[in-house]
Simulated assay, not measured.
Amino acid sequence: MDDEIPRTMKALVGNRSMITRILNYACSSSSGDGVKVTTVPVPEIKDNEILVRVRCVAFNPTDFKHVDILSPRGAIIGCDYTGTVVRIGSKAPGNWAVGDRIAGWTHGGLYPDRGSFAEYLKIPGDLAWKVPSSVSDEEATTFGVSAVTAMLALNVRLGVPWIDDTGLAKGRFDSPILIYSGATSAGIYAIQLAKYAGLKVVTTASPRSHDFVKEYGADDVFDYRSSTAVVDIIRSYPNIKIAMDCFSEGGSIEFCAKVVRKNQGRVVTLLDPGTTMAAP
């Protein structure tokens, strides 16, 4: 298959100057030509990497945020992908074979030779997974940034028990957790992980999404736009002390902080608020 791999490929790359990106950050705006499709070299892989022919990608908020503020000109955009293995480094972990279906994520938006919105991408062999025949390319490409974000937030930062090979979590316990913005991609994964861990899943969503998040395991749903939402959650779950903010903009961080403040709880946010926040 090496003979079939071209030397160049099409890719979506960042196209904003540093000055424009600084202005976007300062003004919380999006201006200038953000991206363009161009021809770039097919990435050269290291011994521990594999080369993937991209078949499907997913779009994440971090992608357009990189374009607005972080991505230098020429950086390939995109994180999540599904594809086919076409070249394998001599020391690449993972027992890969040419032709394997593969999915995963990469840190796109910063480098000229690494990103998923391209015909080919390179990835370390241990940062991907083999896609079973029962899972479509479209489905597989969603198990990337959002799923990993949910695991890092819940299992690593908030101490939610890991799920073992049986599909159950060690040390299951019936404690409440707030997942703010449960209808987002990260929120949906967080709801399922928390539910498998035995937690009482409390989430926020607009009324039209209440049934949607309940289908994925939410036990209780509150309208985040309600002026009494914080009070209602505290009244219903007075022992709640952990929260994951899957939106992390506007007043969502303060909302979560108020909910867990009485119990001196913890909130994991997906964006850095810039300052340490104490709920009033």
Rank of each mutant, 00 (worst) to 15 (best):
280 P>G: 14
279 A>D: 01
27 C>T: 15
51 L>N: 08
276 T>P: 00
70 L>V: 10
255 F>Q: 05
201 V>W: 02
38 T>Q: 03
145 V>W: 00
67 V>Y: 00
44 E>Q: 10
154 L>V: 12
105 W>R: 09
101 R>W: 14
55 R>N: 15
259 V>E: 05
191 I>N: 10
233 I>S: 05
196 Y>M: 15
212 F>N: 07
245 D>Q: 12
166 T>S: 15
74 G>V: 03
140 A>T: 01
213 V>M: 04
168 L>Y: 07
204 T>G: 03
174 D>V: 10
69 I>G: 00
161 P>T: 10
56 C>F: 04
51 L>H: 07
145 V>M: 09
119 E>F: 01
274 G>A: 14
272 D>M: 06
92 A>I: 01
138 E>G: 13
156 V>R: 13
76 I>M: 12
160 V>T: 14
125 G>H: 04
122 K>I: 07
214 K>Y: 11
205 A>P: 06
261 R>C: 13
101 R>A: 15
264 Q>A: 15
62 T>W: 02
189 Y>M: 10
39 T>G: 03
69 I>N: 01
59 F>R: 05
92 A>H: 00
197 A>F: 02
32 G>D: 08
208 R>K: 15
280 P>E: 13
92 A>V: 03
159 G>K: 04
187 G>Y: 08
164 D>T: 08
236 S>P: 06
67 V>R: 05
16 R>C: 05
231 V>E: 05
4 E>Y: 09
53 R>L: 06
255 F>H: 11
269 T>M: 01
177 I>T: 01
106 T>V: 15
193 L>E: 04
271 L>Q: 09
215 E>Y: 06
75 A>Y: 02
150 A>R: 00
237 Y>T: 06
122 K>D: 02
54 V>D: 04
6 P>A: 14
194 A>K: 01
90 S>P: 01
36 K>W: 04
38 T>A: 08
32 G>T: 02
19 I>P: 01
222 F>N: 04
257 A>F: 00
201 V>Q: 08
215 E>K: 11
57 V>K: 00
16 R>Q: 10
90 S>K: 12
20 T>G: 11
262 K>F: 13
115 G>M: 03
240 I>G: 00
108 G>C: 10
188 I>K: 11
151 M>N: 13
74 G>Y: 08
17 S>A: 05
173 F>R: 15
259 V>Q: 12
212 F>K: 07
